[in-house]
Simulated assay, not measured.
Amino acid sequence: MGRGLRRHEGAFILYGHRFSDDDDGYLQGLRPAWFDDQVAYLTRHYEVIPLKTLIDCLEQRRAVPARSVVLTFDDGFRDNLENAVPILERYRVPATIFVVTRSLTNGELPWSQRLGVIFQQTCNHQVSHPQLGEQPAPLNDSHQRRAAYQRIKLGIAPLQREARDSIITGLANQLGVEPPLDQMLSWEDARLLQASGVEIGGHSYSHALLGQVPIAEACHEIRRCREELRDHLGLEAAPFCLPGGSYSDDVIRCIKQTGFRSCFIPNQQKRYNTVVNTTLFTLSRLGLPNAPSHHLEAELDGPFHPLRECCHWLQGGYRSLSPSP
């Protein structure tokens, strides 16, 4: 009924990260069976189009296909290839994967997931770090480990890459954990994905939160990402995705000047993208729910969004309930 009453004049852009039934690194994966259900729903009720098609429409100022959907995945986890791509191929739908280029080179997890794995897997019962105060912080249960992780993550996010990496390496040594090197795509994987029709985009060099680090560091992350995409994959004007949705006006300016073709901006109020309400560098996305397809249906065509808007109106203002990881 909701589909009949609500018209969508443009394209929803949906995003996910991992496609696995676990929360390694404190990044919850989407259960592959649920993703399968979601793609089945989308192919029945929407036209799933490549991101490139949407960008072409915006550049050429022509109408975006009505009731269309774009699928995007962030970071470049190997489970995208192993678990998500077979589903895409079965339903014959396109997608774009935004990769952290350093991870494709050395296999390391993005820094926040690397830090998370260290705290999840440690057998130590305490940790010492200036971000946690003068006394060692207890790690006796999952709640204490996650709380320590979140405090350190918040403290090191604005640091330059070398300093951030040094702290994470020190914590790995202190807590006796060696983060895995086999959970990310490689450059060879990326070339295979390109050959199969999956679009590759940029997600920075090391997943720095670009709006928090110094602008010189942010621009280095953006430029090195573009250079490596060009050198390894032949991409001259790829789309870009902000790590964690973190940005400033200067960051967006650098993305444009570096030669990326488009970028997403966090905006929970803009549901779908048209030539009227968006530009190449203000595209908006919605997260795929970690739930069966009826949750996605309720979000796109049912009561979830209207009810959320009503609650925000009653509370006297809009605030994001599900920020990008």
Rank of each mutant, 00 (worst) to 15 (best):
Q60E: 14
Q126H: 13
D301M: 03
P323H: 06
G116D: 02
E178C: 14
E199T: 13
V213Q: 01
N173Q: 15
F119E: 00
R145I: 00
A157M: 13
V177I: 10
H295Y: 15
F19E: 07
V99E: 00
P86D: 07
Q131H: 14
S262P: 01
L104K: 02
R319F: 13
A40S: 11
P94S: 09
T96K: 04
F264T: 00
R92D: 13
C123F: 12
A291Q: 09
L115M: 08
L288Q: 02
G16R: 02
I13A: 09
P214G: 08
G25R: 01
Q150A: 10
E178F: 12
L109P: 01
A84L: 11
E236A: 04
R146V: 05
S103A: 10
I255M: 02
S320M: 13
E108H: 13
V117E: 03
G76M: 04
I118S: 02
Q120A: 01
S284C: 11
D141N: 09
E59I: 02
A218S: 10
N83Q: 12
R319K: 12
A218L: 05
E108N: 12
L280E: 05
L81M: 13
Y318T: 15
W111S: 06
G4D: 13
P266R: 02
R308D: 11
T43G: 04
Y15G: 05
P243Y: 04
Q150F: 06
G197E: 08
I13Y: 01
D249H: 09
C310S: 14
H295Q: 13
A208M: 11
P239N: 01
G316Y: 02
R230M: 09
G316S: 08
L154A: 15
Y149C: 02
A163D: 14
R6S: 07
T122S: 06
Q38D: 04
E227V: 09
I97G: 05
Y247M: 04
G107C: 03
Q183P: 09
E217K: 08
P239Q: 05
S128V: 12
I55P: 05
P179I: 03
G197V: 03
L307Q: 12
H143W: 13
T43P: 00
F19G: 06
L280T: 05
R261Q: 07
A190T: 06
S142G: 08
F281M: 05
T169L: 14
I168L: 10
E47W: 10
L81I: 10
R224K: 14
D74V: 01
A157Y: 10
G25W: 00
G116V: 03
R308A: 12
E227N: 11
G155S: 10
I265S: 05
L104A: 05
L139F: 01
R44W: 02
L51F: 04
I167L: 09
Q28R: 15
L51Y: 00
P266F: 01
V93P: 04
D37T: 10
G10N: 07
S320T: 15
Y149G: 04
H305I: 15
Q257M: 10
H232S: 06
M184T: 10
L71Q: 00
P180R: 06
P306H: 07
D79G: 00
R285A: 02
I200Q: 08
G2S: 03
A157W: 09
L229F: 03
D56W: 07
S142K: 07
L30E: 08
L209M: 14
E59K: 11
Q120M: 00
I55T: 09
P306D: 07
P179T: 07
V276M: 11
Q268G: 14
N83G: 07
R224D: 12
V64S: 03
S196Q: 15
S322M: 15
L283N: 03
E47R: 15
